[in-house]
Structures are given as C-alpha cells and as structure tokens.
C-alpha cells in the first residue's frame, strides 16, 4: 500500500514537472478572474485602554485584555482579480474583494460582596467582526517563465470598512476559558461607528501560479498590515454598542495584521484584441 502511495506521489510530481517545464508566454497579457479565500487576523497592540481603572483597593492589578492568536481569528474573503504582465515575469495586479476580519479577546473582573459574603467572578469573551472592501494594487514577480511559477508580490491597499459587529460571552469562572455554547451571550451589537472607516494597508506575500493557454490558477498568501489604527480615538468611549455600560468594555488602540490565503482562477486576454 505504501509503495502504491509513494508511486502515485512520484508520478504526480513527474507529471507536474513535465508540464511545468513547458514555457508559458505571459508578456502583454491581461488576466481577469475571481478569488476566494480565508483571512486570519491579529490585532497588533499599540496602547491599552480600560474603562475600569485599577486602584490599590482593586482585586486585580490591571484589567488588560488578552487577545487570541492569529490562526484562531478566521474570516473570509472573495472578490475579483485583474492583472497585466509587463514582462514575462513582472506584472501589476489588483484583487478588489469583500473581506471579513475577526478578532477576539478576553478579560475578567472580580469583586467581593462584603454584606452577603462571597465573591463575584466574571469572565468575558469579546468577539468582533469587521466587514470591509479591500482594493489593493500589487506588483508581482514570477521566479520562472514556466507553467508552474512561484512568485512574490507586494503593494498597498485601501480598506473601507462598511460594517462591524460585536458580541460578548460571559461566565462566572475566571479560568481563561469561556465556552460559547454554555456561556451567557449578549445580543449582536453594531460596532461600525467605533471604527476608522478608511484604512491603508501595506501588503507582502508569496504564492504559486499554474498557467495554461486558456486559464491560470494561483494560490497565494499575503500578509497585510493596516497603517491606521482600527478604532476611532474620538469615539473610543462613546459606547455605540451599549457594551461599555453593560460590560465595562472599551477598545484598545491597535493596528490589524492579516494573513489572506487566496485561491484565484484567471483567464488570459491578449493585449492585441
């Protein structure tokens, strides 16, 4: 069985290599297509803010939020692709898309009931979702002129957030874990007015493309870093969600780092129509 599997893999590699050895002419061609993929997001913290301030009389020394890591914040993206190859290896492209970025964090509070006795523990999981339109401009360099061609790309994009929402889950144990199935949840509140609606991101990534005469497919991973902070500083405490009052929640100052994994299907058009 292992020998059959190994043989299949070797055959596949041989076929792919055989195909990739063929020269694929790309210069002066336009490519149009569609893309779909996954977005992983991580806030890069610049300054912490908290509505609740620790004092010497507090049970906790701080009320810092604990952010979840990049690969636990999964969103999606889908959109269009358009590119033009100046040379067989250099091309300029744009991939306007709708994308959803998610990020979440946890925090907790603890108070004592000195009249009835006992302790009050509250732990919260805050989940945010930002939907935006991304309009990037990228320069791509293909390492080969063959059908299978790895590439790197870099550029900038304009991100326009059009909707954001937020939901809070809570339980009564401080254990760094809130089970969304059993926790008490808030309603979903619109979070859009708290955002800087327009943002600029720098992009960089790599991928691999497969070119045929009548179509092309690529798989790319692109890191993007938003140059503007995501939260509007003048509206930080405005409490449009109602969650500052209810959950003592206020957003930190951060920039969003995202990793977009996109599959793109393209069709080529010759410059000379």
């Amino acid at each position: 069985m292992r020998i059959v599997l190994l043989g299949t893999i070797l055959l596949g590699i041989q076929l792919a290599y055989g195909q990739s050895n063929r020269h694929q002419y790309r210069k002066d061609r336009y490519f149009f297509g569609i893309n779909v993929g996954t977005t992983f997001t991580q806030p890069i913290l610049r300054e912490r803010f908290s509505l609740l301030q620790a004092t010497p009389q507090s049970a906790q020394k701080d009320f810092d939020k604990h952010y979840s890591h990049l690969f636990s914040n999964v969103g999606g993206a889908y959109g269009l692709h358009g590119s033009f190859a100046f040379t067989p290896q250099f091309s300029i492209l744009t991939q306007p898309c709708f994308q959803t970025q998610r990020y979440s964090y946890m925090n907790s509070y603890h108070w004592s009931d000195t009249i009835m006795g006992g302790e009050v523990y509250k732990e919260f999981l805050h989940r945010q979702k930002i939907s935006s339109i991304r309009i990037p401009i990228l320069l791509r360099f293909d390492f080969t002129r063959l059908r299978f061609s790895p590439f790197v790309q870099t550029g900038i994009s304009a991100d326009i957030a059009y909707f954001a929402s937020k939901q809070v889950f809570s339980d009564n144990y401080i254990d760094q874990k809130v089970d969304r199935k059993s926790a008490t949840s808030s309603s979903v509140a619109e979070f859009t007015p708290h955002l800087n609606r327009f943002n600029v991101a720098v992009l960089g990534g790599a991928g691999i493309a497969y070119y045929r005469e009548h179509f092309a497919v690529s798989l790319s991973g692109t890191l993007s870093y938003n140059l503007r902070t995501s939260i509007n500083e003048f509206n930080r405490y405005a409490d449009y969600t109602g969650m500052a009052t209810e959950y003592l929640d206020v957003q930190d100052k951060f920039n969003l780092l995202s990793l977009n994994i996109l599959v793109t299907v393209m069709v080529p058009l010759h410059k000379k129509w």
């Binding site: 509505l51 301030q53 009389q57 108070w111 004592s112 009249i115 503007r228 902070t229 930080r236």
Partner: peptide
C-alpha cells in the same frame, strides 16, 4: 490618510475600581 500624532485631549470615561463591591 495615516495616523496624525496630535491626540492631546481625547475624551475619556473611567470607572475606578474597588474590590469591595458594596
């Protein structure tokens, strides 16, 4: 469109905590 640094007087709301909930 990127960040400008003058944020000298931003509005804020603060609640000062005390463990004694009562």
């Amino acid at each position: 469109a990127c960040e400008k640094k003058d944020k000298s007087s931003l509005p804020f709301v603060k609640i000062y905590d005390d463990q004694n909930g009562n």
